[in-house]
Amino acid sequence: MIVFVDGKKKDISKEDCRVCDLLEELGVNREAVVTVVNGEITVEETELSEGDEIKIISAVSGG
């Protein structure tokens, strides 16, 4: 799967997991982000598959 955290590409070896598992693996707090899978905003319980593109967008303001 292809993962972008705030626009930066991350290499992830994890496959066939849920969005919340991926966030945990990345050390990202689910309360602080919105997740987009294959172009659609989705819930963190969504199952991911090989080839999925995941964008993790920070919801917290930086200033």
Binding site: E31, A32, V33, V34, V36, I41, I57, A59, V60, S61
Partner: peptide
């Protein structure tokens, strides 16, 4: 309203 819901509203 939590910050996450505000970002979600903006994106949606």
């Amino acid at each position: 309203i939590p910050e996450k819901e505000i970002m979600l509203y903006a994106l949606l």
